[in-house]
Structure formats: C-alpha cells, structure tokens
C-alpha cells in the first residue's frame, strides 16, 4: 500500500495532478446542482408573488 502511495518517487506529482482533477471535476457538477435548486426556488417565489399581486 505505501509502495502504491509512493508512486516510484513521483508521489507529489501524480497525486497533485489527480487531486486538482478531482476538485475541478467535482466543482463542475456541484455548481449546476446548486444552481438548479436555486433556480427552482427563485421561480416558485416569483410565481407566488405574482399570484399575490393578482389577488390584491
């Protein structure tokens, strides 16, 4: 296991490359996921306000 982590002496390079990739790719999915929730919230809020305005 420790031999695997050492990557033949290139541990720093190999793991930092994979680390950056993991961060960037996770962010790339998290961002639209959160945006989706936010968009749904905002639209439903706007619609409710619109209905209230019509009733007044």
């Amino acid at each position: 296991m420790s031999q695997f982590l050492e990557m033949g002496g290139y541990a720093f390079y190999v793991w930092s490359a994979y680390g950056v990739s993991t961060l960037v790719l996770c962010y790339g999915l998290l961002r639209p996921y959160l945006d989706h929730k936010k968009t749904l919230r905002e639209i439903s809020l706007k619609r409710r306000q619109h209905k209230r305005d019509l009733n007044d």
């Binding site: 190999v14 490359a17 990739s21």
Partner: peptide, 10 residues
C-alpha cells in the same frame, strides 16, 4: 516510471 500515470487525466 510512475510519473506517466498522469496521462490518465491529462
């Protein structure tokens, strides 16, 4: 050596 494994993301 093992540094070539970066190829799999690069």
């Amino acid at each position: 050596g093992d540094s070539f494994r970066i190829i799999y993301v690069h």
